[in-house]
Design a protein around this nucleic acid. Sequence first.
DNA 1: TCTGGGGTCCTAGGACCC
DNA 2: TCTGGGGTCCTAGGACCC
Length: 422
Amino acid sequence: MPLFALVDCNNFYASCERLFRPELKGRPVVVLSNNDGCVIARSSEAKALGIPMGAPAFQWERQFRASGVAVFSSNFPLYGDLSARIMTTLEGLAPRVEVYSIDEAFLDLTGVADPVALCREIRERVLRWVGIPVSIGLARTKTLAKLVNGVAKKQPGHGGVFSLEQGRDTEAVLGVTDVGDVWGIGPRHSKRLLARGVRTALDFVRLPGDWVRREMSVVGLCTQLELAGTSCLSLERAPAPHKSLLCSRTFGRLVSEPAHLREAVVSYAVRAVEKLRREGAEATSVQVYISTPRHRENLPQHSGQATVALPAATAHTPTIIAAALRALEQCFRPGFEYQKAGVMLLGLAPARARQISLLDLDPAERRRQQGLMAALDAVNRRFGSGTLRYAITAAPDRPWHMRQLRRSPRYTTSWDELPRVG
DNA sequence: TCTGGGGTCCTAGGACCC
DNA sequence: TCTGGGGTCCTAGGACCC
């Protein structure tokens, strides 16, 4: 019988911010998305104030001030670093670990003699070594482990660990879980299920399988089986290589100048190719999309998207920039105020196993390009990203630049911003 | 009156996740 | 004034081939 644990950090980004500011203990903390747009993480005190996930920050400013909420811009280098420390800690304690997201990991505890005791130890050690509180759910399938992780989190009596295997009544737990809270059942399906009178996870398990298969595809069927205790999802120890890779941003202010739009697209393309090379991969096509604001009906709306195929797989930044600019030209329409742009690299494949193309560069030129990119990456790794950059992206004070007024210091990833003691 | 069958590949759209 | 960013998978339909 398989046994899975899901380790999930509590209010991860908010906990990270609090870690270096002990005076925030007990105070409500929220973390905002890029551009300080909306709330993407809340401490338990902030949740208790009724601040919802995704709340637009500007609508809540007054409440933030009135209730003494500590507000932070997002600081992903900090969160990524703390996440890596947590995952390393888990790997030291559990036999098989799947890093599922920045703040979650599945463990395969099949055959472990006392899994609950191990989970308690894991929880304690992560808290002591890294300082971030986690909750752990234990069950026969990933979907059930995820579900009871919610129980571990919401009911403090369990001390942060809840096991469905300790003679618990599975039906009782499913019966008090909203169908929309099940992992794999999103807002669309949950609305349709509610319309059929399916309110809880238990109602969902009891639906005829062929209906689920027809209406929710094999994905829905897998969720149903997993809730019933049949494991369909296994532990994925090595992350699958990416098939696509995206860099997109909402602009600090609206952009109508084509030249500014080009700068933004180039800078996103540069970042995307950097990620591509870090993965040791190459792309075969480049997609660009641009759009006007979604939430303002009084402005003329336009969103466009275009894909340009590359003659051969590459991770050469200038080649990708040229393709991205061509794609931008294809989807740009003048006379609109744009709010967002993105560059997606598609058809990713490892650089060392590449398809030979008739349109390939001659090998000497290809080596020259690879050498140039390697040198560029080495300099930026050594002296900080952006040390060597493309002139077109470097202009100061552009409307597309991100707003981040409340970023915390990069305590763990920047020498200049280390916390001071004493 | 009557218009094959089967396979592959690509794309767009929809759904989900954190 | 002001609403994030980065992914995956499934399905249906069309193009194309023999």
